[in-house]
């Protein structure tokens, strides 16, 4: 210890003793311990105030989904029709808002085409999928697939998510509707329909989220969450069922791939007695659960994962996550008292 440090310490110590009775409130050494959530390689500090805005000016209802655009901005979709789209910078500063016509705005996916960003919004109240420019101009609308004979009327079509391939093809998950996965080409022409409601391997109860998994570029697959079944299902691009990954206890929303991992918001713990029992879940490149921020540590016994459940009252109903280039995470929540997104800082 050098002389300066020694002097500083000893003076502080003696003054601390002498002044303690009078100044104990002002100079007490507060007990600070930043909460760290998550397990193994994926642990985070929590900034609840990151996306907080003036609710009178920029209100939110459910914060359904959150993504990052090519410019690095963080884009939130809420079903509040004063401002369906809220755009932040990474520090949480509001950049702009737009959108007043998405009362059931639920799914939000980025599509970058020849360097230009577009958004795919699913709206379960409009019973449509809408493609917009990044500043909100609608360029394509997908109606319910009447010609397939799988739908009696548009009300049966309640799309929750989309995922887009490099060639412009896209898939729609009808997670609140008839549980089909619909495959379209870039023009919006229907190429294929598969899935549907049921408990068979290739069917779904709440096909809530979908994403393209191109981590293995040789053989890209589709990942679809069957939320009520606590399963992530893998399909080939032509709609053939491949396998299921069990996540006992976790109502996983949509898969989000970042680097080699898959991230999920978990809406609720299946067996929870408390309301607001959500958490987050991260799988590694082998699709094994490695971290559950806000919940039990993932443990495998004989290759099967023990039931996961929330352990601390931090998240309410996480509904989507977005991971930026610094590996920090942004969490949007459904039905959580009109709260704004939370930022998690990787530690």
């Amino acid at each position: 210890m050098n002389r300066r440090k020694f002097l500083h310490k000893s003076i502080c110590a003696s003054a601390g003793v002498l002044t303690l009775p009078m100044y104990s409130g002002a100079y007490s050494f507060d007990y600070h311990k930043d909460l760290i959530i998550g397990h193994n390689s994926h642990q985070y500090k929590v900034d609840m105030n990151w996306g907080k805005l003036d609710a009178n000016k920029v209100p939110v209802q459910d914060c359904h989904e959150i993504i990052q655009d090519s410019k690095g901005r963080i884009i939130l979709l809420t079903n509040h029709v004063k401002n369906n789209i809220i755009i932040y910078d990474k520090s949480g500063k509001l950049i702009e808002t737009w959108g007043t016509t998405y009362p059931g705005g639920h799914g939000l996916t980025l599509s970058t085409e020849n360097g230009e960003d577009f958004l795919f919004i699913t709206d379960y109240e409009r019973h449509q999928v809408i493609k917009t420019t990044i500043d909100g101009k609608e360029v394509m609308t997908i109606e319910y697939p009447a010609d397939t004979g799988k739908y009696k009327n548009k009300e049966e079509f309640k799309p929750t998510e989309t995922t887009i391939l490099e060639n412009g093809d896209f898939y729609v998950a009808d997670g609140y509707g008839n549980q089909f996965i619909l495959h379209y080409n870039y023009k919006g022409e229907l190429l294929n329909i598969f899935g549907g409601r049921g408990i068979e391997n290739d069917q779904f109860l709440n096909a809530h989220g979908i994403c393209l998994d191109a981590r293995n570029q040789e053989s890209p697959v589709l990942l679809v969450t069957a939320r009520e079944q606590n399963q992530l299902k893998r399909f080939s691009l032509d709609g053939t069922y491949l396998s299921s990954i069990e996540v006992p206890g976790a109502l996983i929303c949509r898969p989000v791939i970042h680097k080699d991992e898959i991230y999920f918001a978990v809406l609720k713990s299946r067996g929870a007695t408390q309301n607001n029992s959500g958490f987050l879940l991260i799988m590694n490149d082998k699709n094994e659960v490695i971290s559950c921020p806000g919940a039990t540590k993932p443990l495998y016994k004989n290759n099967s994962l023990a039931e996961l459940y929330q352990t601390i009252k931090l998240f309410q109903h996480p509904h989507d996550v977005c991971i930026d280039e610094d590996d920090n995470m942004y969490v949007a929540q459904w039905n959580s008292g009109q709260t704004y997104p939370i930022k998690l800082i990787r530690v």
Binding site: H32, K33, D34, L35, K45, V46, S277, Y309, I312
Partner: peptide
């Protein structure tokens, strides 16, 4: 400076299962 991070002492445990 770290006050914008949630503090452990402010977080409640979930009741036992």
């Amino acid at each position: 400076l770290s006050d914008h991070f949630v503090q452990t002492k402010d977080v409640q445990l979930v009741n036992p299962k």
